[in-house]
């Protein structure tokens, strides 16, 4: 299925529409699938992802919930254990903190605590990231926190193809999968082949091949990193760009293959620097490729500040192409 032959007939679509098509496809394929969350039905989804699905599938399967993140996430866990395949939409990662107990103490632990008797085949989707001037409580990037937790899988689709393809594969997983959709990507356009479908969720992807430095990133930062790579090319620096795609488990093999080739690495991660996913990746490079490296591993992360409201300060608080270019040049000794 994953290796389905791709027919011609390329269409342009947005990331939002790709996610919607993925949900629609899942609802059609499997009667056990239903979508549940705040404003997913009548409102059409906070980010308009589920617009139109209520009319098509009805209120049982496009289920509006009260503002009870812990309650409906836990209900998703129970429904998954009871034989359904729920997609729980938590409006944003910021509100997922109200469901963190259910995610960490139940979804991630039940298989283990029960000695492998019960699993939780649940998919939880949520929006993440800064960039819309929504200030300190609505701009978090906490996917790195979730990637800390054994028992769950964490995905970050950065492309239209992954937005379309990761959901179905995630729904086939016998364990909980969290999918983080960066808010700045919903309006992004991209192309999909007519029969676009499920994609692999285990491997990182090399989005740009290069030989001088590995830029390792995921999600919304991918596009800033690719922009930085274009700028670096103008200065004869040939950067390789890795899109992690899966934040847990991490695809060490793809990362190490790249840094073994380029011998230099910068990690780009919108999460706060201290204790970040970038720190984990950097340490893995130290553990597995230290003797191959020609320079210290660099990082471009979120600044250690709650995200401020004013646009210029918000932009300064998160990764951008200029910071990535500067970090790459520093790693190459080209200041």
């Amino acid at each position: 299925m994953l290796q389905a032959t791709r027919q011609s007939g390329i269409t342009e679509t947005t990331y939002r529409e790709a996610v919607r098509e993925a949900i629609r496809d899942a609802l059609k394929r499997d009667d056990r699938v239903f979508l549940m969350g705040e404003d997913v039905g009548r409102y059409g989804g906070c980010y308009a992802v589920s617009k139109g699905l209520l009319a098509e599938f009805g209120s049982e399967r496009i289920r509006d919930t009260p503002l009870s993140e812990s309650g409906f996430t836990g209900a998703g866990i129970g429904a998954a254990m009871g034989g359904m395949r729920p997609i729980v939409e938590v409006m944003t990662v910021n509100f997922s903190l109200l469901a963190l107990d259910q995610i960490l103490n139940s979804a991630a632990t039940i298989r283990h605590m029960s000695g492998n008797q019960f699993g939780v085949p649940l998919v939880i989707r949520m929006a993440t990231g800064a960039g819309r001037q929504l200030a300190a409580q609505h701009s978090h990037s906490l996917e790195g926190w979730y990637a800390h937790i054994p028992g769950i899988r964490v995905l970050a689709p950065a492309t239209v193809e992954d937005a379309r393809g990761m959901l179905w594969t995630a729904l086939q997983d016998p364990d909980p999968v969290l999918i983080f959709e960066n808010v700045m990507l919903y309006n992004m356009t991209g192309t999909l082949v007519a029969d676009a479908g499920p994609v692999d969720i285990a491997k990182a992807a090399v989005r740009r091949t290069g030989s001088d430095i590995s830029l390792i990133t995921y999600g919304g930062s991918l596009w800033k990193t690719l922009e930085a790579a274009t700028q670096l090319a103008a200065e004869n620096i040939n950067a390789e760009v890795i899109d992690l795609r899966s934040l847990r488990p991490l695809d060490d093999a793809t990362i190490m293959a790249s840094v073994n080739k380029t011998r230099r690495a910068v990690i780009v991660d919108e999460g706060w620097r201290s204790g970040s996913l970038a720190a984990e990746i950097g340490m893995r490079i130290v553990e597995q490729a230290f003797w191959e490296m020609d320079a210290p591993v660099g990082r471009v992360c979120g600044e250690e500040v709650p995200i401020p409201y004013p646009s210029h300060l918000e932009r300064a608080a998160i990764p951008n192409a200029a910071k990535i270019v500067a970090a790459a040049k520093a790693a190459l000794g080209r200041d």
């Binding site: 129970g78 009871g82 729920p86």
Partner: peptide, 8 residues
């Protein structure tokens, strides 16, 4: 919440 989900 799990009980609610099982019943759902």
């Amino acid at each position: 919440p799990m009980a609610v989900g099982l019943a759902l």
